[in-house]
């Protein structure tokens, strides 16, 4: 296996995903199969490509500093989506102390 159970658990933790032991096992198996497949890339002779990309004709898109929209433009619409709110704030469980 290219990936261990502990690695899967660590990646799940970093990705903020809870997995059961059975799910970790299935995930290890599935991810391993995909990694074996994408590892075919290790066999291709690739030129040294500089950082950045050449496949899109990229240009920097700039705008003037400043507010793109009036301060309140979407506040109510977006706050309305928050599962838990208090007044004009999104409410979360406290993260300091306990």
């Amino acid at each position: 296996m290219a990936i261990s159970k502990d690695e899967v658990k660590k990646l799940a933790e970093l990705s903020r995903l809870e997995l059961t032991d059975a799910e970790v096992e299935k995930m290890q198996h599935d991810i391993d199969a995909v990694i074996s497949y994408v590892d075919t890339l290790q066999t291709v002779d690739l030129p040294e490509v500089p950082e950045g990309t050449i496949y899109f004709d990229e240009v920097n898109v700039m705008r003037e500093d400043g507010d793109a929209l009036p301060g309140d433009a979407f506040t109510d619409a977006l706050l309305a989506q928050a599962p838990r709110r208090q007044g004009r704030f999104v409410k979360v469980k406290k993260i300091l102390g306990s």
Partner: peptide, 25 residues
Amino acid sequence: ILGAYVLSSGYYDAYYRRATALRSV
């Protein structure tokens, strides 16, 4: 999880960078 794996610090060169190079090829 696969995305987190290929972006992990130890694997970045082997995966993401190679994939990007292949796009150019």
